Amino acid sequence: MTLRAAHTAAADREAIRAGEHTGPTSGLAPGFAQANLVILPADEALDFLRFCVRNPKPCPLLDVTDTGSPHPSGIAADADLRTDLPRYRVFRDGHLVDEPTDVVGHWRTDLVSFLLGCSFTFEWALAAAGLPIAHQVQGVNVPMYVTNRRCTPAGRFDGPLVVSMRPFPSDAVPLAVEISARFPAMHGAPVHIGDPAEIGISDLATPDFGDAVRVGADEVPVFWACGVTPQAVAIEARPSLAIFHAPGHMFVTDRRHDTFDSPGAS
């Protein structure tokens, strides 16, 4: 269902909590940054924190909750991470067991939540510069792919880099790179441009997460590190419980987009 127009991030979260929006969040809550979600037991949290520090491109850390608290006080104090995302994915011992619209029934008092930067945040700047976003134009979720690049491990957390892809005309690619580089807390500049086979992607038409988009004959695929990376890593790490956002179904924060815009960053 399409979300009604709202003036604040809190209003959008309330509507999501009420089940009025259960789809992807690209383009939702104009002006407000979005975030990836990772929830783990406390005994796994320190290693995952190390993983984020060692892999800042796919896992740019925005906030970490207190143990047992579902409230991300640093970026949206009144939010509830158990209910305020459109859809979740729940893994036990590396196996997907549920894809609910809330995780109240899975919540435990030993859980720690991590909020990671999301490339949906710099999409507004790309669009403002006249660069159309293919998945928004085509009305689908952003395509995401597991690559042949490995992350830097931390404890049991080790696995492949996941990327999101947006195609642009070749003459627009330098501008897309320049704009996204201004947002290091939201994955920053692309990690690869051009031939997908060079990073282990055999077919752009079959993404591992999200939906395929049409790539025009004059367009070049551009790949950014993606916050779905922890989900691919969790399949290999096999923690007893891991809860994530469903790919493309992000958490809407109270932070404005432009607070993450850092001209001169690379």
Score class of each variant (00 low, 15 high):
263 P>C: 00
47 D>M: 05
95 H>F: 13
173 V>M: 13
71 H>V: 00
161 L>T: 05
102 D>I: 11
17 R>K: 15
30 P>E: 09
260 F>D: 03
57 K>P: 00
263 P>Q: 06
226 C>V: 03
91 F>Y: 15
17 R>P: 04
86 P>L: 04
106 H>E: 10
221 P>R: 03
226 C>T: 02
116 L>E: 09
24 P>H: 12
195 D>M: 07
240 S>P: 03
57 K>E: 13
100 P>G: 05
237 A>L: 01
138 Q>D: 02
1 M>E: 13
64 V>H: 06
151 C>S: 13
204 L>E: 08
17 R>W: 06
88 Y>Q: 07
239 P>A: 04
91 F>S: 06
121 T>P: 05
266 S>V: 12
225 A>P: 07
106 H>V: 00
212 A>F: 13
199 I>V: 14
174 P>A: 12
140 V>W: 01
193 I>C: 13
54 R>Y: 07
37 L>Y: 04
109 T>V: 02
37 L>W: 03
111 L>Y: 15
65 T>M: 08
181 A>T: 05
266 S>T: 13
93 D>S: 15
157 F>Y: 15
125 A>W: 06
73 S>P: 00
3 L>Q: 10
264 G>C: 12
224 W>V: 11
53 V>I: 12
11 A>H: 02
27 G>T: 00
128 A>H: 03
129 A>S: 11
166 R>K: 13
29 A>K: 03
245 H>Y: 06
